[in-house]
Amino acid sequence: MDSLTQKIREIASNILKEGRVDMVIGFAKGTIPMTTKPYMARTPEQVENFIWDKNCTLNLANYITGRKEKIGIIAKGCDSRNIVNHIVENKISRDQLYIIGVPCSGMADKHNPDELRDNCATCTHRNPVIFDVMAAEPVEEQKIDDPFADVKAVEAMDKDAKWSYFEGLLQNCIRCYACRNACPLCYCPTCFVDESGPQWVGKGQNKTDIQTFHFLRAFHCAGRCTDCGACEAACPMDIHVRAFTRKLNKDSLELFGWEAGLDITKRPPLDTFNPDDPNDFIK
C-alpha cells in the first residue's frame, strides 16, 4: 500500500481512538476506475477505507459547512485554502477541526490519467496552508511563469469572439448544478436560481437563463475561489466553468494582490474597505 494512504489511516485512527474528533472526512476508493468518493469514518475500523491517490479531485471543505461536531479532515493544498475560507466566513471554527495536511503533487485529468488536470498544472499552493499534522514532507511548489495565460488568451479576443466563446462554453449545460454543489463556496441556504419569490432567473433550458446562472455564480466566488477545480471535476458535461472564476482570480490578484484562503487572520478584499482600494471605476 501507498505510504501516504498508510500514514493517513494511522493518523485518522489515532485521533478517533484518542477521542480528539468525532469523525474523519477523507476519500474512499470508488467503484469504477479513476474515481474516489468522499467518505466519513466514525470508528477506527472505518479508517481502513481511506485511500489517497491521483483521483481525489473533489474538495472536502464542502463537507464541513455548518457542522457542529469535532471533525478530522484530510486536506490537500486547495482543500486547506477552502478550510481557511470557511473559518474566515464563520462556517466552522478552527477549534472544531483537526486538519491532516497532505502535500499534493496534482490530481489526474479525469479523461487522461497520465496528465495533470488543468487547475493542478498552474497550482502554486500544493502544500496545505493550515494543518495540525502533515501526513508527509512538503512537496516543492511549482514556479509558473504565466499562470493566467488562458485568461489572457480570452482577453485578447475581440468582443464578439469573446461572446461566442462563452456561448459555446455553456451550450451543453444541463443545469444539474453539480458545479455549484461541489463548490465549497456555494453554501447559501437558497441559491439565487432556486429563489421563487421573487424568481430572479427562468428555470428552463433558455440559453440566457443558463448564462445568467454561470455568470452570477462566478461573481459570487470573486475573491474567494481557490481554483480547486471541484466544479469541473463534478460537471457531467465537462464544461470549462473555471473560465469565469479564473478571470476573477486574475483580477483579484492584480487589483488587490489577493489570493483566497491563505490566512485566517485576513478578510477578503471585497469584504473590507481600504483607502488604497482601486477606485477608477467610480466617476
Partner: peptide
C-alpha cells in the same frame, strides 16, 4: 454522506420523469 444534491443522476437517467411547471 457524499451526495452533493446535484441533479446529475436524475438528468442522465432514462427513467426519471419528474417535471416542474413554469
Amino acid at each position: 454522506f457524499s451526495c452533493i444534491n446535484c441533479g446529475t443522476c436524475t438528468f442522465v437517467c432514462p427513467t426519471c420523469w419528474c417535471f416542474d411547471i413554469q
